[in-house]
Amino acid sequence: MEIEAKHHPMDKYLRADRIPHIWCPGCGLGTALNCFLYALEELNIDPDNLAVVSGIGCTGRIAGYLNVDSYHTTHGRAIPFATGLKLAKPDMKVVVFSGDGDLFAIGGNHFIHAARRNMDMTVLCVNNYNYGMTGGQLAPTTPMEARTTTSPYGNLEHPFNLCHVAAASGAVYVARWTTLHVRRLKESIKEALNKKGFSFVEILSPCPTAYGRRNRSPTGLDMMKYYQEHSVIKHGIDPSEADIEIGGDIIVGKFVDIEKPTFNEMVKELIEKARK
């Protein structure tokens, strides 16, 4: 029997004429995107009032598949581009959807400063531990000892704990899930989208093609099994205690949810004062 799906239930949010996408079998990006789309639907977000900004890389391609105002910018610069956009269009929802290399290596400075300013935006970071699109090189998130195409003897660098970086930089909402935790991930994305200020969700995602097969997880399923066996939910813990180590547990959950005036609010107040 041949099964042919003509439509995706979330087609209304997609540029269906751009599918098929470029992602590999076993990649978690489809799942991450799906959770985002269901979050949009459940929050009843008007696509005309949503802008999605991406940088470069596999995750960077997400913007191009979404049927909204979508901006595929330069490597690492999605956040400052989105900063300009959000300041110009304060009533729009602005989401940055990009990868770990894009947001935390080449774009790391922008990430910490947007969080520090409490720029009103949601940053969704798909972390697959490596640079997938360029062939599986070492990333700032690659666990110690892991093998990549530029760490053939094993990684010598201490990786970033992204949630710790986000919290320390001033993010008002910080959560981490894997692509196994689809419902929890979707709920976290909804909370992040509803949050005023700089919200951050890290999405751990399998990259069997470029990362997994060099690290004893050659299929997407292997990595999903690992998530299932090693994920430990610990809401509210200090994210500094949620480092990711090879072979170790993966701490997931919502770590930060606080209130702070946003940069947008303060700019608005300043303009009102200055115009008097």
Binding site: F81, T83, G84, A88, H110
Partner: peptide, 15 residues
């Protein structure tokens, strides 16, 4: 880098 990116983003925001 960020300054230039921000003025592009704000220009797409209509300013």
């Amino acid at each position: 880098l960020a300054s230039m990116a921000a003025i592009l983003g704000a220009s797409w925001g209509g300013l």
